[in-house]
Design a protein around this nucleic acid. Sequence first.
DNA 1: TTGAAAGCGTTACCAA
DNA 2: TTGGTAACGCTTTCAA
Lengths: 239, 239
Amino acid sequence: MAVTIKDVAKKANVSPATVSLVIHKHQRISSQTRSRVLKAIKELNYHPSRSARGLVSRQSGNIGFILRDDHFSRIEPFYTKIFLGTEFQARGDEYYILLTTVPADFKKGDQLPRFVLERNIEGVILAGKIPLTLIEALINSGIPLVFVDYYPPNGNYPVVMIDNIAGGIQATTHLIQCGHRRIAFIAGDIEHPSINERFQGYKMALEKARIDFENWIKLNQKVLFSLPSHFHRITNIQG
Amino acid sequence: MAVTIKDVAKKANVSPATVSLVIHKHQRISSQTRSRVLKAIKELNYHPSRSARGLVSRQSGNIGFILRDDHFSRIEPFYTKIFLGTEFQARGDEYYILLTTVPADFKKGDQLPRFVLERNIEGVILAGKIPLTLIEALINSGIPLVFVDYYPPNGNYPVVMIDNIAGGIQATTHLIQCGHRRIAFIAGDIEHPSINERFQGYKMALEKARIDFENWIKLNQKVLFSLPSHFHRITNIQG
DNA sequence: TTGAAAGCGTTACCAA
DNA sequence: TTGGTAACGCTTTCAA
């Protein structure tokens, strides 16, 4: 049987209410009472029950994290790392992350992630290019949303974005400064805004250095064609 | 305000207890009552509260998933995919997965994952080579454990393992049958039992084909040295 | 500054 | 086959 708030209360000679107040760092608790309670908590190795707490406070202590299945299992661990950081941070704030993947072709009427239906989360983080149909459904659900590395074309939401253009410029400029002139750009889904922006930066840097991009392409078809098939060749977007 | 079991009960003209029985697919409920209740559930879009359920049933509906931080962020998405499959399966069984990473150098006395302390999980899946100190602590905690792709040297636990030796043999044999004779083995942490086993298989296949592995090594030092530094060279284990 | 008690939504036991 | 009711462990309000 797990240790409950009552056990702590008994041990510290106070009421459960007082223990709760101490846990929530309530002000008006005498410092002696507080330390007595904290001691009891430590000695009994007490940890509040999530369920009980959630039931009364109406907070699950969970944050949802939605990723497209093909983004998560990709070779590039980009979103994996974003998840990693998210979990690490949430841990510090005593939250859990519920990660779920959704199919890239999520259709209207498809089941929403269960944590949304059950309202078992207090907010949802969407990483990457999530299908718009899903995003709309989530918006309608009224759950707080945060977008990472992508956001829907219209609307006004909290986002965490990378300055992809600047990144593209930086990377390219660095190579140019190293004396290189024949610089390739290997991308994933070029339709993805982030990647497209990096490509913009890449081209801007080339332009600034007066390197003829178009010509380079023509001379190096062979290299480009040797890319793995799941990478889009940059020529795809050259009209 | 969310829909509760009482709302459903009222709508279906039964007691909350009956609704609960229907949800849990209890036998002794007349089929008409059942369908009436199910209809109400659907119409109200009712989803039971995890917290309330957890409080009384003492089941969190969560499964812990522990991974070493360096394994999760690796370029190779091996464990990522295992997690993906786990989450997918758990989803079907109405469970959530709480993923957390632990440092590769987890030391005795370090904080256990919070979901363990809070007993917010019903069992834990350990993927990959988890530090023994952590494993011991988990074993002592009495939580049900399942190991994936690795298990501690002694003890008797449920494991999910790959036949790595056979895999090593298969891969190598395939290349040999394609007519190749100079076959390299690129590995991650060669101390990892799984990788070591694959290497055994590799060597067995070479031996069977009468390919002189040792000699091959000597002739190809340059190739081996060009591997990225976070890969161990096979020569490391050549005494 | 502290405590008593109500109530959160569900399950499970016992009656009906 | 169904319903009433007492828990489950915690928070919060109100009173002491």
